[in-house]
Amino acid sequence: MEEFGSLEELVAALRERQVREVAVTGKVATTTSPGGGQVVFRGRLVVCADLGRGRQECYTEHVMPYVTETEAPEMALLPDHAADLRAAQRSLARQLRAYRHEYQAVMEAARAALADRLARAGVEVTEPEG
């Protein structure tokens, strides 16, 4: 996979190859503070063109990071597996809830802006396979 430093460089390379379709994949990483009181989201949008034979040319756009305070800090782990399990499930639910309510819209806006830049350059965004 070849990675380009800017969208414009990727588009120029695709234009040379007469490739007019790319797939955009969103990736979001969350990091929780000790105790779980804060969740930090960092997003990326990976634009990739499939050149065939397993070759790809890509560009990664970083989306504005976001920090949110969660309503209920994680409880200290209790000394049994059931409590540990519930703590993990609560933590997952809290991160998913914060993502959906606060960061998903940021990702979607960034994705729309990227798609608009690609469309103006004559490149169509297709749904990733799978």
Binding site: T30, H81, D84, S91, L92, L96, R100, Q104
Partner: peptide
Amino acid sequence: SVGHDELTVTLPDGGS
């Protein structure tokens, strides 16, 4: 609840 994006979450260790 995951949606279109690939999500990486941090979870407390333990609990199998």
